[in-house]
């Protein structure tokens, strides 16, 4: 493991070149480059906001801000893994010709997406603090922990999936289906609180369901953590005349710090396992039977 990272460090110029290359390709083909690439999440979030405000009856001030804060990390997770999964196949002509640490390919794709995510978050922060006027809060200090945890989790999964995809060509379909399911299983368009106070199961079991949800789905914990660290607490209110006459209120739950550190530990484990798995499989890429 240490030797693996040492070698990556030796090839850092190549890693940097790979990252630049990914970003160039992404921002190419358009005059507006980076800003053009923001259009997709913005339009998506706008549609989500309209649907959830007016169809589902979510009554929250700045609802779109609460969605964006979770949706941008989600797109980082999703695109980093989807991009990484294609790298080994995509770079096969080069892999078959010359040696370089193969880890650089999924790592570069993940880092390029991290850079893109950082830029997008910068724009989001400018919007939140300059236009909406969200107050700065102390919990922002935990944001780096959240980002590191998400990066490690994403990197580990990228290593696994890029490897599997090199050997089994149907993995990419499974991954895109899995991503779709995970999106609905994670609090992007809804809130964790709605799971905590769901009326579907008896009150006695609600709390354990809530913890099970966050412990089994590390992405859910991360997205919740982004929301809690960046935005002020809110009581989610839902009033949907089509469903029920009454108004449902879901009181805010603060982010439990122990959950964040359990999440970080889990991400570290996944990153370690992913790197190890990749290390064992990487010589097989050129001679897969």
């Amino acid at each position: 493991m240490i030797a693996q990272w040492k070698e990556i460090w030796q090839f850092r110029e190549l890693l940097w070149t790979l990252i630049l290359r990914e970003l160039r390709v992404r921002y190419k083909n358009s005059a507006l480059g980076f800003f053009w690439s923001l259009l997709n999440p913005l339009v998506t979030v706008m549609v989500m906001t309209v649907v959830f405000k007016y169809v589902m009856g979510m009554q929250i001030p700045n609802y779109s801000a609460y969605i964006l804060v979770a949706y941008l990390p989600w797109t980082f997770f999703q695109y980093a893994i989807l991009d990484s999964s294609q790298t080994i196949i995509g770079y096969m002509p080069v892999i078959k010709k010359i040696y370089f640490p193969r880890e650089l390919l999924p790592l570069g794709a993940t880092l390029a997406n991290l850079v893109h995510f950082g830029l997008a978050m910068g724009v989001l922060f400018a919007y939140l603090y300059l236009i909406v006027g969200v107050p700065l809060q102390w919990s922002l200090l935990w944001l780096p922990v959240v980002i590191v945890s998400q990066f490690l989790l994403t990197l580990g999964l990228s290593m696994f999936i890029s490897c599997l995809n090199a050997f089994y060509e149907d993995v990419k379909y499974l991954v895109s289906v899995g991503m779709q399911l995970l999106f609905f299983l994670s609090p992007v368009i809804y809130f964790s609180e709605q799971i905590r106070h769901t009326s579907m199961i008896p009150e006695a079991q609600r709390e354990s369901l809530f913890w099970a949800y966050h412990l089994l789905n590390p992405v859910a914990t991360l997205l919740m953590a982004y929301r809690k660290t960046i935005l002020p607490p809110i009581h989610v209110e839902q009033q949907n005349p089509a469903m029920s006459a009454g108004r449902v209120v879901f009181p805010d739950m603060p982010l439990p710090l122990w959950l964040l550190f359990v999440n970080l530990g889990f991400s570290l484990l996944i990153a370690w396992l992913g790197m190890r798995y990749f290390d064992r499989k990487k010589w097989g890429f050129v001679e897969r039977p």
């Binding site: 290359r21 160039r24 390709v25 083909n29 002509p93 010709k97």
Partner: peptide, 24 residues
């Protein structure tokens, strides 16, 4: 490198030189 190996079609010649030279 074989024809096109490591060249990205959408990048310019200059940008491709960097990637290939650094990989070598």
């Amino acid at each position: 490198l074989e024809l096109g190996a490591g060249f990205h079609p959408d990048l310019t010649g200059l940008e491709n030189i960097f990637f290939n030279a650094v990989i070598l």
